[in-house]
Write a protein that binds this DNA or RNA. Structure first.
Lengths: 151, 151
DNA sequence: GCTCATTGTTACCTATACTCACAATGAACG
DNA sequence: CGTTCATTGTGAGTATAGGTAACAATGAGC
């Protein structure tokens, strides 16, 4: 407020932080020997939050990306055996994306990688600060991760 | 803390927020009719914070990117006339990146775009919350933007 | 049946950043 | 001096994440 450029600075910090997060995430994903990119990890995690196999369009909405992007991600994950495209008997246009056993396994290992990455990036903050940050981000992002089931 | 997955969620929110910021930034940059991408805008802004024309390597460090990335950005900005590569008389290896008058002008218009973008993304927060967020990000990012002069 | 909306995808493009190799230059030192 | 080594920027190529536009297949409304 005092600094008229404070908001811009904030944006800069946000960017810097996220790029750092991305790098750390990538490294941890490699270390954990999961042949998975951060975006694929994100899809996998989102997928797990749905009660039943979501449609591609559902995933696009949940991830806040264009449907086309989901196709690419699911392609990669399906090639890796983590998910499976299943036809919807009720509507032959839609494709349900199912988590395979292999995918569930990957998710489990992924959790470790994710926790490590988060721990590393959040190291400078006290638990209270983390909570505060979480609250602020909630407000900013809109709180609703738009997941199928509220996990 | 209570939720063992809270950190991962936080990372997710951060990612979501930054991608949203990126989109908004891009849109505002287009609206303000500056033929400039977000990353170029960032370099330009960083450039303005140096007391004297920095070397490419200085920019790489300030932006936290690999030197090669700076080359690409400066290429584009130089093609657009916003910056100029100037040889360093003291060391023929180094290249100083200077802001042109045109670049200074772009920076001025850019400020508006940036403020608008920040305003839009930060709309849900009260001024106090923004300040709090800024503080937390400061702590996370390390406070030192590694700019030549502490602006 | 005809028209229109939905759904996923093919094909292509962009932005950002990375690695690797290299040429030019400067610095250190026998 | 010359040899070796470090610095600096860049060419070439790659990866990741995303976006647009056009389209074929399908379903829905009249």
């Amino acid at each position: 407020m005092s600094d008229p450029d404070a908001d811009g600075l904030l944006a800069e910090q946000l960017l810097r932080l996220t790029r750092r997060l991305h790098r750390i995430q990538k490294r941890h994903l490699q270390e954990h020997a999961l042949g998975i990119t951060p975006a694929q990890s994100r899809l996998l995690r989102t997928l797990a939050h749905f009660g039943e196999p979501p449609r591609m369009a559902d995933l696009a909405e949940a991830l806040e990306v264009v449907p086309r992007a989901v196709t690419t991600l699911v392609d990669a994950l399906e090639a890796g055996g983590a998910v499976r495209r299943a036809p919807d008997p009720a509507n032959r246009r839609v494709i349900r994306v199912e988590l395979t056993d292999e995918g569930r396994d990957a998710l489990r290992r992924l959790r470790g990688a994710r926790r490590d990455a988060a721990k590393e990036i959040l190291a400078p903050l006290t638990p209270e600060q983390r909570e505060a940050l979480g609250g602020l981000l909630d407000t900013l992002v809109g709180t609703e991760p738009a997941q199928g089931a509220r996990c």
